[in-house]
């Protein structure tokens, strides 16, 4: 564990908590893509199945439990409790265009052709594109609530910090995991456009609005 990975995990946790609190406090999931939240929940479920098979550390297990429970709670809030505020008309990204190629690729490119490893690989590839429905929804509505932009900022930052962690580990430990690195790069690059808008608009107190 190094400081970049710890900062990444904290950033990820902050993002998940921000979203959960935003929906719970405002009792509304306006502007939130339920499809992305379903993808994130499946990312965690498929990646953390080893929660029941191997114990790595208290930190590792507790973070996995927190991620899985918060993401499932978020999906529940969006599709059940605050369903009336769910903006389905703008959450129209065809997720099958993500899940099918990702599913196929995880069978072709993986570290080991075993069920757990293929599920882990599927989860890594899926996570790299899971934010697309959310970004697509923002491009369709042409704007995002400021709290939602903070959620996206920390969510995008987390994998960017992991990338630094992997550079650090390659340099000092000679460790590298090409699957995680390539997927992490794709994932972080997808946020670049958002990061630019976040820094130039939201951090200057303006509302994030895309040229519709």
């Amino acid at each position: 564990m190094n400081i970049f990975r710890l900062a990444g995990d904290v950033s990820h946790l902050v993002a998940i908590i921000i979203l959960l609190l935003k929906i719970w406090k405002t009792r509304s999931c306006a502007g939130i893509s339920g499809k992305s939240q379903i993808l994130f929940a499946s990312v965690f479920v498929t990646r953390y199945l080893d929660l029941f098979t191997i114990f790595i550390s208290l930190y590792n297990s507790s973070m996995k439990i927190i991620y899985i429970s918060c993401s499932i709670a978020t999906v529940y809030l969006v599709y059940f409790k605050f369903k009336a505020t769910y903006d389905g008309n703008h959450d129209t990204f065809r997720v099958e265009f993500l899940v099918v190629p990702v599913g196929g690729l995880s069978f072709l490119v993986n570290h080991d052709f075993s069920p757990m490893e293929i599920l882990w690989t599927f989860s890594i590839y899926l996570e790299s594109v899971a934010i697309l429905p959310q970004l697509f929804m923002i491009s369709k509505t042409g704007e995002a609530e400021t709290i939602t932009t903070h959620y996206l900022f920390f969510l995008g930052l987390y994998r960017g910090l992991y990338l630094i962690n992997w550079i650090w580990r390659y340099y000092f430990e000679g460790f590298f995991d090409l699957i995680a690195i390539v997927a992490g790069l794709v994932q972080t690059v997808l946020y670049c456009d958002f990061f630019y808008l976040y820094v130039t608009k939201v951090l200057k107190g303006k509302k994030l609005s895309l040229p519709a």
Partner: peptide, 10 residues
């Protein structure tokens, strides 16, 4: 350098 998966990473 060795390319492998780290099960410790989240």
């Amino acid at each position: 350098t060795s390319e492998e998966r780290d099960k410790d990473e989240l």
